[in-house]
C-alpha cells in the first residue's frame, strides 16, 4: 500500500513541459509603445492505448496480461493517424483564440505574434496547450 502511495506521489510530481511548435510573425516597434498580451487554451490529452499497454505490463495474471495486450492493440487500431502529443476528445478547443486576442488589445493593432503549441505531459495524460503571445501597440 505504501509502495503504491509513494509511486503515485512520484508520478504526480513528475510532469514535463513539451514544446511542439513555435512561430513568430512580423515585429513592428515603430508605431508606439508595446504591451504584452497572451491567450492560452488547453484540453486534456489521453492515450488510451498506451495506458492499457502499461496496465498489461503490470498485470499479475497471464490471462489478464493477454487480454489487456489485445485491448491495447485494438485501441491503437481505433486511433490511427498522425498525432502531436496525446489525442484529445475535442478538436475545436482552440477556435476562440483570435477573438480573445483582439479583446485584450483596445487599439486593435497587434504585432510580434508568437504561436506556440506545447503541453504539460504526465505520461499518458497531458494538458495539450495552444498559446498565442503577442504585443499590443498602444
Amino acid at each position: 500500500m505504501l509502495r503504491v502511495f509513494l509511486t503515485s506521489i512520484v508520478l504526480m510530481c513528475a510532469s514535463c513541459a513539451r514544446l511542439d511548435h513555435v512561430q513568430i510573425s512580423d515585429i513592428d516597434q515603430s508605431q508606439g509603445p508595446l504591451k504584452a498580451i497572451s491567450v492560452k487554451v488547453s484540453n486534456v490529452g489521453f492515450d488510451a492505448a498506451a495506458t492499457t499497454a502499461i496496465a498489461a505490463d503490470l498485470a499479475s495474471s497471464e490471462s489478464a496480461r493477454d487480454n489487456l495486450g489485445d485491448l491495447a492493440a485494438i485501441l491503437a487500431m481505433f486511433n490511427m493517424g498522425p498525432r502531436t502529443g496525446n489525442p484529445v476528445y475535442n478538436d475545436r478547443y482552440a477556435e476562440g483564440l483570435l477573438q480573445q486576442l483582439k479583446q485584450q488589445c483596445e487599439s486593435g493593432k497587434i504585432t510580434a505574434i508568437r504561436n506556440i503549441r506545447e503541453a504539460k505531459s504526465y505520461g499518458t495524460i497531458s494538458g495539450e496547450i495552444v498559446r498565442i503571445d503577442a504585443d499590443c501597440i498602444i
Binding site: D20, H21, Q23, S25, D26, A48, A49, T52, L71, I74, L75, F78, N79, G81, P82, R83, T84, G85, P87, V88, Y89, N90, D91, Y93, A94, L97, L98, L101, K102, C105, G108, K109, I110, T111, I113, N115, R117, E128, V130, I132, A134
Partner: peptide, 21 residues
Amino acid sequence: FMLLAGCTHSIHMVHSDGFTE
C-alpha cells in the same frame, strides 16, 4: 473503451498573423 477511442483528435499547429488594421 471503443466509444472513447473512436473520436480522438490531435491539433498539430495553430498559426495566426496580420493584425495590422
